[in-house]
Structures are given as structure tokens and as C-alpha cells.
Lab assay of single mutants.
Amino acid sequence: MALNTPQITPTKKITVRAIGEELPRGDYQRCPQCDMLFSLPEINSHQSAYCPRCQAKIRDGRDWSLTRLAAMAFTMLLLMPFAWGEPLLHIWLLGIRIDANVMQGIWQMTKQGDAITGSMVFFCVIGAPLILVTSIAYLWFGNRLGMNLRPVLLMLERLKEWVMLDIYLVGIGVASIKVQDYAHIQAGVGLFSFVALVILTTVTLSHLNVEELWERFYPQRPATRRDEKLRVCLGCHFTGYPDQRGRCPRCHIPLRLRRRHSLQKCWAALLASIVLLLPANLLPISIIYLNGGRQEDTILSGIMSLASSNIAVAGIVFIASILVPFTKVIVMFTLLLSIHFKCQQGLRTRILLLRMVTWIGRWSMLDLFVISLTMSLINRDQILAFTMGPAAFYFGAAVILTILAVEWLDSRLLWDAHESGNARFDD
């Protein structure tokens, strides 16, 4: 018995066209964080690309023209004298008006014999932002004059995390709450300039795509075929072959399989920071003279006294001054041990922890910024005066060393310790 099946006739004509040209192939790229070699397709503007294995951002879609970056830099340069030299806060102490600005706080630190601690604050609040705007201006002028731009481009990517104007702005709020127990506070004209400078700096850093600047100024022929001998440069993120001198053909720094002496430098910085954190938390970090009496505060006791007036601000200072430094030390110690013992479990967790400490590390400088600003506000000789204690130097040095330890660690070593050939990683 035959089955009668109805015929289905399409209502619209289906047209099949042959592909007349070869589909576009992607360029081969190595991930600078996990060293995976993959094919990167062509990316349009405002599109980002991520590593298929570790999800690290390979290409950032946010990109401004150099002219727009230069305009932002010149605007920031105009704001800087007002943000640093004009009063941020006014207080009335014992019937006398006192003005506080950024430069005055750094000068008070240096004047009291601790120039190293003052230079830490100076670099993060004044030096690094000033280098940022002058570097962008150098790129703008240098591109037109045919100057060598490689050193500036190499420095810009590392400079971003040292620009800490946003953290200093939080420190202004913390210092205001600490001082309000002794005097009446009012915002100064410099505060508005400083807030504007923070906003412009944040926007500029978020749109400063150094890798795209490398592509514009020093374009290189990408690798179009897969080759395990391809290496990625950690300076400019170019994937290719080393030249005859073993250097990256684009930025001219040595092109090595792994960062040289990464573990040794990381261990040295980490152990030194552990040693410095002990006096930083045991010795007094601030000293207040009130009517001839002397009151010393460690980091913890200062947080407890701050909690009596504002528990939320005390929580912020606790996280930045105690929780973050010790968390960074514990995480980095764990990561280094996992590399030495070739741990194969929990790779995803370790990668996330490394990215976390990379982002939060700079916030530990908050305590030094609060001390710097408070020193310029309260300084009335023996009637009422505020000065920093010996722990300030140890704390600042420990924070900087932990930042350097994270920067010096080559994250690809975590993958080397893991089993080879993993296309995915999980716990």
C-alpha cells in the first residue's frame, strides 16, 4: 500500500549564491595573561575582544583620537594649579581661619623630617597626573615632529594605576569627618577644581587605549598563520617573532617567553612588605597634641575612634588600611606557593584573586592621604596640633611594595603550573 505524501511548494523562490571570495581570516594573537594562541577576527570600533580561555580583555573598544586626548590633557593642565594650590577646605580653629590644600599637606610631611613619605604622596597625587598630561601632550606634538614615541607609550600603561586623584578625593571626605570634632569646616574653591580634575582624569584614563596608539604610530604586520613560536610582548602586546637582537619589532624591548626574574622580584617585594606591615600596624601612625597632652593612634585605634562619629567612614578606612593590605599579602603568598608547588586545582579562583588584588591594591594609600591633609588643617603649635607617627613611612612603603609585587608577577606562570593543553579552566 503506497502512502500519498503531499508536496510542499515554497511560496518564495530560494536563491543560492556561491561564495565568490575567501572568507576573511583572523590574525593570530597570544593572550598576555595566559599565553593562549588564538585567531582574533577583525574588530570594529566600539567592540571589545576577550581571550577565549581566561576571559582577559585583549582589545578595548573604547578609543579616543589623539586630538581629543590632547584637549583633555590641556584642560587638566589648566585645572591643576587651582586643584593643588587653592584651598580645598576652610576650618575655623580657636577663632582663626585655616586653609588646607594639597601642596601644603605634602610640605608639612616633608617639613617634619619625613621627606620619603611626603614624596610618596607627591608622586601619586601630583607627579603621576602631571606625567600623564605631559605624556599625552608629548605624543600629540611628537607625532607631528617625527619624534620617538616608544618610551612614552611604554610608560603610559604602567602609569595608570599610580594616578590616585580619586583616592585622594575620598581622603578629603575622611579628613573632614575627623577634623569636624575640633573645628567648623567649609569647602574651599580649590575643592571644585579638584573634583573637576578627578572627573576629567577618570574619563581620560578610561578612554586612553595605549594598544590602539601603538597600532597608529607603529603598525606591524600581524601573524596570519598559526605558529607556536609566536611570542607576545608584555610592553606593547604585539604578537610576532623577535628581531635579530631578540627584541620586539614594535617597542624594541627584549621579547622573552616569560617575564625575567618574575618570581624572585615578586618574592622579594612580598617578604619586604610583610616585614614592614608589622611596625606599620604596631607603631603610632598619627599623633595629636591637645592642650599640651599627647595622644597617639595606631591604624586600628584611629579607626575605632573614627567609628564613634561615623561608622560608615570608619568601615571604608578599615577596608583600605587593614583589610586590603593583608588580603593582598595572603593572596600573593598563596599564588606564589601554588606556582612553586605546581598546583593544578582552583586555577579559576587564583586568576580571579590576582585580578582582584590588581584592582584594589592602590586604595591602601588612602590613610597616607588623610594624614597629609589633616596635617595641613590642624597645626596650632602646642594648643592643638596633628602630626604623623613613625608607622606612616612603614605603611606607605608596604603598600608600594605590594603594588610592585602584583605588577611583577607574570600571570602566565600560573598556567605553566597548571596542566598543559587546557582550553578551559575551572575549579
Rank of each mutant, 00 (worst) to 15 (best):
I303W: 10
I8S: 04
F74L: 09
Q344V: 10
F393W: 06
W162K: 01
M120Y: 10
A280E: 11
V313K: 02
N291F: 15
N143V: 15
G235H: 07
A269F: 04
I311P: 15
T75K: 04
K13V: 07
M36D: 05
K265T: 04
P325S: 08
G421N: 04
G188D: 10
M365F: 05
K265L: 05
L37M: 10
E21D: 08
A312C: 13
C34S: 00
A2T: 08
V121F: 11
G118T: 03
G20M: 06
R68D: 03
A2Y: 04
M147V: 04
I383H: 02
T334Q: 13
I330V: 12
W92E: 02
R260D: 09
G292Y: 07
A100K: 02
K229N: 13
V324K: 02
P6A: 07
K342F: 13
M80G: 09
E296L: 13
S193F: 02
H184N: 06
T239I: 08
V331C: 13
Y28Q: 12
M155R: 02
K342I: 11
Y394C: 02
V275Q: 11
Q180A: 13
A268F: 03
P254F: 10
Q104K: 05
L352Q: 11
P10N: 07
L414T: 12
L409H: 07
T224F: 13
G118C: 08
H207L: 13
S262N: 11
C54P: 00
N422S: 08
I136F: 14
C31T: 00
A314S: 11
L40M: 08
L165W: 05
A18Q: 09
S119Q: 02
K160F: 10
A71Y: 05
L347T: 13
V203H: 08
P279E: 15
L353R: 13
L373R: 01
Q7G: 09
P10T: 10
P222E: 14
K57R: 05
Y241Q: 13
L282S: 11
T15K: 10
S321N: 01
S321C: 13
I8P: 09
D166P: 15
W107L: 10
A397P: 01
F386Q: 00
Q220D: 14
D63E: 11
G315F: 12
I96R: 07
E42L: 05
I116S: 06
Q104A: 08
H252T: 07
L89H: 06
L156Q: 14
G240H: 11
L282K: 12
N4F: 07
M356E: 08
L404W: 07
I199Y: 09
I116Y: 11
I96N: 01
G85N: 07
I383C: 02
N44Y: 08
S308V: 13
Q104T: 09
E21T: 07
L366N: 07
I167T: 03
I378H: 00
S193Q: 04
P254L: 03
Y241P: 10
E42D: 05
A18D: 07
I378M: 03
G118W: 01
P249E: 10
H261K: 05
L66R: 03
F326D: 05
Q186C: 09
P41W: 03
G346Y: 15
T358D: 11
M375C: 03
H90R: 08
S65W: 04
G292D: 01
L208Q: 14
P81L: 04
I19T: 06
R158E: 12
A223V: 12
P242R: 14
Y394V: 01
A83D: 03
L255T: 05
T298V: 13
T75I: 08
K342R: 12
G146H: 07
A49E: 04
L88K: 02
V232W: 13
Y394H: 09
A385E: 03
D60Q: 05
L414S: 07
Y138N: 02
V174F: 06
S262L: 03
A392T: 04
I96L: 04
D114Y: 09
S308C: 08
F194D: 11
Y289R: 03
N422H: 12
V210T: 14
R225E: 14
R350Q: 10
H252Y: 04
R225N: 13
C233T: 00
R258W: 07
P390F: 07
A280N: 03
L139W: 04
Q264I: 04
Q186W: 07
I98L: 04
L154E: 02
L149Y: 03
A268M: 03
L306I: 14
E42V: 06
M103L: 05
M388K: 04
M103F: 04
I303F: 11
T327S: 15
A71Q: 03
G105F: 01
H252L: 06
V133E: 02
V133L: 14
E42C: 05
V170Y: 13
C248N: 00
A187I: 09
D367W: 00
E215D: 14
E21H: 08
A314G: 09
F341V: 10
L213H: 14
H340C: 10
Y182W: 05
M365S: 04
Y182E: 10
G346W: 14
S206I: 12
M103Q: 07
R348S: 13
H340R: 12
C233N: 00
I299G: 12
L230A: 14
V195T: 12
P249Q: 10
G26E: 08
R260V: 08
P87A: 04
A18I: 01
E215S: 15
